[in-house]
Amino acid sequence: HMTFVALYDYVASGETDLSFKKGERLQIVNNTEGDWALAHSLTTGRTGYIPSNYVAPSD
Rank of each mutant, 00 (worst) to 15 (best):
T43Q: 08
K22Y: 04
A12L: 03
P51N: 05
V55R: 04
L7F: 04
L26F: 15
V5G: 01
R46D: 06
G34Q: 06
G45W: 02
T16P: 05
T16H: 15
I28E: 01
D17P: 03
G14C: 15
S19G: 08
G34T: 08
T47L: 07
M2E: 09
N30I: 11
G23H: 03
T3S: 08
V55A: 07
D9G: 04
T47I: 09
Y8V: 08
A56W: 10
A56C: 12
Y49H: 06
K22T: 06
G45I: 01
G34E: 07
P51S: 02
D35P: 14
R25D: 04
E15H: 11
F20W: 02
V11P: 04
A6Q: 00
N30C: 15
S19T: 09
L26Q: 00
D17E: 15
Q27A: 08
E15V: 11
G34S: 09
L18N: 03
L7Y: 03
K22W: 03
G48F: 05
R25Q: 12
Q27T: 12
L7I: 08
S41D: 03
V55I: 13
W36R: 09
L42W: 06
S58V: 15
R46W: 07
P51L: 05
G23C: 07
Y54Q: 06
P57K: 09
T32V: 14
E33F: 14
N53D: 09
S52E: 05
G34H: 08
I28D: 00
W36S: 03
T16M: 14
A39K: 00
E33K: 13
V11C: 09
S58E: 15
A37Y: 15
N31Y: 15
I28L: 10
P51H: 05
D35T: 11
D17M: 14
N31Q: 13
N53W: 14
G14Q: 10
G34Y: 06
V5M: 06
H1N: 11
A37M: 15
S52W: 15
H1Q: 12
G14E: 08
D9N: 06
V55H: 05
T32P: 12
S19E: 06
D59I: 13
P57M: 12
D17Q: 15
Y49L: 11
F20Y: 03
W36E: 03
I50F: 01
A12V: 04
I28M: 08
I50T: 00
S19A: 06
H40G: 02
G14N: 13
H1W: 13
Y54V: 06
A12C: 05
V5H: 05
I50C: 02
G14P: 02
A39W: 03
A56D: 06
D59P: 13
W36D: 01
S52M: 15
A56Y: 11
M2H: 13
S52L: 15
H1F: 13
